[in-house]
Amino acid sequence: MLPSSPQVRSVYSEGVLPTLRRLPKEQARGTLCIDSTTLDVTVAREVAGDVISTGAQMVDAPVSGGVTGAKAGTLSFLVGGTTESFERSQSILTLMGQRIIHCGPSGSGLGAKICNNLVLGVQQIVVAESMLLGQKLGLDPAVLAGVINSSTGGCWASSVNNPVPSALPEKSPPCERDYEGGFATALMLKDMGLATEIANEAGSPLPLGRAAENIYAQVIKQQPVLARKDFSSVYRFLQITAEDGKKVKLTE
């Protein structure tokens, strides 16, 4: 699992592929590559094609579940590849996760992950907005979170990753640790960028996704310290922006 597309290209082109090409054919055919990076779908398919050309097998297997899921071994793996490659990968992936989902051919796991994180990225912003608004209306964060989480607004961004300290008394989201130990804002910005890029290629409208990408970019530009903090720290960005009397720009 690497940061993004450039690192995957480098690792495979400079290390994995040359090694596979030097292996006896039987050893190459016995090799399975599993890449859990969230990267560009086109790059992933190109790399998988190069790996398969050596006789080896490869799946893209990005994860969902965050740091908490990784520690607990409850991650979901979203797998793209042939049925044979998927079946070979299952015994390995089940050691790290609970749900191993075959999404389709090469690149499909990444497509599913990008779509999932598109939803998550947008939801985390609107949860931050609603929690901030609620407090300005005099609502206790724990009461408001309880209402949202038991109503139609309920979602992971509120029930597990709520951005307001004390909003989830029986849980320990990153906001209780100064937004440390979660999914970095810089990584969410990268994933939102992947979503907008693939939407451009597919000709699919993405109005909320583009607005969310721009907001995460503003978070990092205006408050660089939040780049490595959990992406729920977008709440802090909105809070400080409101205190300074500024407005959040939806477009550049």
Rank of each mutant, 00 (worst) to 15 (best):
S4K: 15
L20S: 08
L23R: 00
K25V: 02
E26A: 08
L32Q: 01
D35P: 07
L39V: 12
D40T: 07
A44Y: 05
R45P: 07
A48E: 00
D50N: 09
V59Y: 10
V63M: 11
S64D: 05
G65D: 07
G65R: 14
T68I: 11
G69E: 00
F86A: 06
E87R: 15
Q90E: 12
I92M: 00
T94P: 10
M96Y: 14
G97R: 02
G97K: 03
C103I: 10
C103Y: 12
G109K: 07
I114Q: 13
C115Q: 00
L118F: 13
Q124H: 10
I125H: 12
V126K: 13
E129L: 13
L133I: 11
Q135M: 15
L139W: 04
D140G: 07
P141H: 00
A145H: 09
C155D: 04
W156Q: 00
S159G: 09
N162A: 07
S166H: 13
A167D: 08
P169K: 05
P174V: 06
C175S: 13
D178R: 07
E180Y: 02
E180A: 04
G181F: 03
G181H: 01
F183H: 03
T185V: 06
A186W: 01
L189G: 08
G203M: 09
S204F: 14
A211T: 15
E213D: 10
Y216G: 00
A217W: 06
A217H: 01
Q218E: 06
V219G: 07
Q239Y: 06
K246S: 13
K246A: 09
K247R: 15
V248A: 08
